[in-house]
Design a protein around this nucleic acid. Structure first.
Lengths: 215, 215
DNA sequence: TTATCTGTCAAACGTTTGTTTTAATCAATC
DNA sequence: GATTGATTAAAACAAACGTTTGACAGATAA
């Protein structure tokens, strides 16, 4: 076995494709372009991934797998609500910061028309939702209620993802250099805290209002 | 002039492309597929839109134009903060509900690599941001502060868009029929209200906290 | 009536697409 | 020293790509 070198070629393809997909979208990138960027022969793509869509599937699996492994243990922790929300948001921000390209490609709605890809996503989303049941309950979110579910943890995941999509877009164009420069470690400490406050007060306020209405 | 018929063909191309782009992504859709769905000849696409990217540009312009015209007057209204947030969110929900495909295509981060398309988006986003200055001030958001800006109105726009992306995806697969069926008029009344509560309490809570810290 | 313009069409343009095949080379394992 | 697996280059494949062309019908304008 030459796993050290194997991995290097497969990994190079993976990373080259990831960067290209994130910028151009899956369908706009050709296998020749990927091969060129990865410094491998075209046939290596089919050798390792079977087909072009195989790379996309690998990206989706890698992203959701990392996401699950990152977020699940934090969701299972036994903390007071406020601390728990804060820690979850902090964890989420860190994840998206470290895995921006992965998330942009894997969490993009498009393409919806490749059944195998959609199947993968559905499987993962379902699994993650089930894994977050404890945290959801702590927030007072009943997953059988469509309204409550639509105000659950996915809400702040959407906000964070949106932020990093914007950041990534800004990074592609030099005119936004000053904006991007401000998004440093210190910023994300404050950002995570501010977001946590926003949702914390939001959830608490809603709960109070519901209790009043029940009286 | 035969504008009545002209519009019909151009409009058919626009709508066919929109539906296909929303499902598959811009790059994955060929001009022949669009022409077939629109029941026009392939050359009609270049005749009306110059190039394939012309359709995408038209979609982006149409979406942002509608969005601006919908949201701007509401943002300029003179209402108490709580009512204002509520009305803005209600307006946003209605917009995304009516223009889901338009929003999915126009607000998608990808593709980032077509400078003309990115230029369009930047122009619109800048314009809309400037147009929302009054509302932003009322929320207590200083647009020169990156942190505050990243917690501004774009936060709940992201949440709403995320919801309708999910809904649209669910509509494409029959296994989610029951979920989609629950998303009716009544749901969206409650959804908009609940979202408004969430952010209202969130912003108020954050403001209180800031005041305390200043003491 | 003749000339012009507009919408529409089929056909063809040269590229590029994803994939497969074949032959050859290189390094590591048995 | 034979075998195996990783990698390369080059070529071929049919299919699809975005765009252009030239012709023609019908309405409009001179």
């Amino acid at each position: 076995m030459r796993t050290a070198q194997n991995k290097r070629a497969k990994q190079r393809i993976f990373e080259a494709a990831l960067a290209l997909f994130a910028r151009k979208g899956y369908a706009a990138v050709g296998v020749r372009e990927i091969a060129k960027k990865a410094h491998v022969n075209i046939s290596m793509i089919n050798y390792y991934f079977g087909e072009k869509a195989g790379i996309l599937k690998a990206i989706i699996n890698e992203c959701y797998d990392r996401y699950f492994k990152t977020i699940k243990p934090v969701g299972d922790e036994d903390l007071p609500v406020d601390e728990h929300i804060r820690k979850m948001i902090r964890t989420g921000v860190n994840f998206f910061r470290k895995n921006t390209e992965l998330a942009i490609v894997a969490f993009d709605v498009i393409p919806l028309d490749i059944p195998e890809v959609m199947g993968l996503k559905v499987k993962w989303v379902t699994g993650i939702r089930e894994g977050m049941e404890n945290f959801r309950k702590k927030l007072g979110v009943d997953s059988r209620d469509v309204l409550q579910e639509s105000l659950g943890p996915n809400v702040f995941v959407a906000v964070i993802l949106n932020h990093f999509q914007g950041k990534y877009a800004a990074e592609q164009y030099p005119q936004f250099k000053e904006y991007v420069a401000q998004l440093n470690d210190a910023f994300y400490e404050r950002y995570a805290d501010a977001l946590a406050d926003l949702f914390l007060y939001g959830y608490m306020g809603r709960k109070k209002k519901e209790n009043k209405e029940e009286e």
